[in-house]
Each structure stands twice: as structure tokens, then as C-alpha cells.
């Protein structure tokens, strides 16, 4: 293991960087997109609700790998030249956003209806009430599940390996076949993943306990 670590240090660090970068980008955009579709789902407008529902159900029920490969293969053919990292991150964002939408929707719905009505009767518009009253409370509720989504995101970013996204797993495959020391290479990669995910996961548990 030590040999792998010292010999392929720069590849590993590069992989770690791409994994983190992809996860952070995907987290940022999937939170925005996810929240948007969550709001769609609670809107009084029926058409918007249906759009929200279709988006969420569609991307929740198709494997991330299929989505990522779709973007890697098909988008460059017809739409725009995007590389593996971009394609994988877009796939990751869309996939995760459907889960975040579901989580945030549950959060919004668990905020008392009276809050919205109260805010509206105080002269706030629907959007103002959503923005300043409902969403902040909903987010407080959904922080622990969102944290878990982030952990999943880091783990799921390993699909970038399938689309040459230069992430940790990709480097791991490369190192494993260069060094021909499969198990130790993947052990090192595993340790690198744990360095990110394990502290996060303990922090989330701590947070959950504190909020409960």
C-alpha cells in the first residue's frame, strides 16, 4: 500500500481534486435545481406540479451510470462538445437533484400550512412567503438528509470513472492496471474516499442528534 501511495501520489491527489470538484459543483447545482422542482411540486398550478413529478420520477428511477453515459456519448454528438468530467458532473447533478427535490418537498410539506397562510394574510406574495418563511424552515428540517445526499454524491461521483472523468476511481483503475497490484491500489483509493466521507458522515450524525 505504501508503494502505491508514494509512487502514484500525484495521480491520487489529482483524482481526489476532481472527485471533490465534481461533488461540490454537483451539490451546488443539484440543490438549486432540486429546490426548484420541489417548489414546482407544491405549487397550486397543476401543470407545474405534473412537470415537477415527471422530472423527479424520471431521474430517480434510471441508473446514474446510464444518465452519465448518455451525456458523455450523445450530447457531444448532437449538441455540444463536453468532456467526461463535465458530462459526468451534469449526470451527477441531474440524478442528485431528483433526490434533493424529493427531500426538500417533504420538508416544505412538513412546514405547517398555517405559516404560509399567515404570511400571505400579512401581505406577502406567494413567492415572498415561500422565500422568507417556508423555505428557511424547510431547509432546517432537511439539513441532515441533505448531508446524506452529499455523502452519496461523493460516492456516486465514482461513475466519472466510466466516462474518463479523471476522478479518484478513474485514477484507481489506471493505477491498478499500471502497478498490476489491484487490491492494494483499490485499498488506497478506498482510504481516500473514506477521508472525505467518514468525517462527513459522523458530522451528520452529530448534527442529527443535535437537531432532534
Amino acid at each position: 500500500m505504501w508503494y502505491i501511495l508514494t509512487h502514484y501520489w500525484s495521480e491520487l491527489i489529482q483524482g481526489l481534486g476532481y472527485t471533490l470538484l465534481s461533488s461540490v459543483i454537483a451539490l451546488f447545482f443539484s440543490t438549486i435545481i432540486g429546490t426548484m422542482f420541489a417548489i414546482f411540486e407544491v405549487l397550486p398550478n397543476r401543470a407545474m406540479r405534473i412537470i415537477g413529478r415527471i422530472y423527479i420520477e424520471l431521474f430517480r428511477n434510471i441508473p446514474l451510470l446510464v444518465i452519465a453515459m448518455f451525456f458523455y456519448v450523445i450530447i457531444p454528438m448532437y449538441v455540444a462538445k463536453i468532456d467526461g468530467f463535465t458530462a459526468g458532473t451534469i449526470g451527477l447533478t441531474i440524478y442528485t437533484s431528483s433526490f434533493i427535490a424529493e427531500t426538500v418537498r417533504a420538508g416544505i410539506q412538513s412546514v405547517d400550512k398555517g405559516q404560509m397562510e399567515g404570511a400571505r394574510s400579512n401581505g406577502l406574495t406567494y413567492w415572498q412567503a415561500m422565500r422568507y418563511i417556508v423555505l428557511p424552515q424547510a431547509f432546517k428540517i432537511v439539513i441532515p438528509p441533505l448531508g446524506n445526499q452529499f455523502i452519496n454524491l461523493v460516492k456516486n461521483s465514482s461513475v466519472l470513472a466510466f466516462v474518463a472523468g479523471f476522478d479518484l476511481m478513474y485514477q484507481g483503475n489506471s493505477i491498478a492496471s499500471l502497478s498490476l497490484d489491484t487490491i492494494n491500489s483499490y485499498m488506497v483509493v478506498g482510504v481516500f474516499y473514506l477521508i472525505i466521507t467518514l468525517p462527513l458522515s459522523y458530522y451528520m450524525r452529530h448534527l442529527e442528534k443535535r437537531l432532534a
Binding site: K155, M169, T182, I183, Y186, Y193, L194, T197, L198
Partner: peptide, 22 residues
């Protein structure tokens, strides 16, 4: 459980397929 939960599944697949024979 915490270790396994926090690893990507692909790694676990590699471990069972390539590791168990050891």
C-alpha cells in the same frame, strides 16, 4: 457498517471480485 456505507459501491465490487480469491 460505517466503513462499508462510506465507500463507493464500485470499490466493494472490486473487492469481492478481485479480493476474495486471495
Amino acid at each position: 457498517v460505517d466503513i462499508v456505507r462510506n465507500l463507493p459501491l464500485i470499490l466493494i465490487i472490486f473487492f469481492t471480485y478481485f479480493g476474495l480469491p486471495h
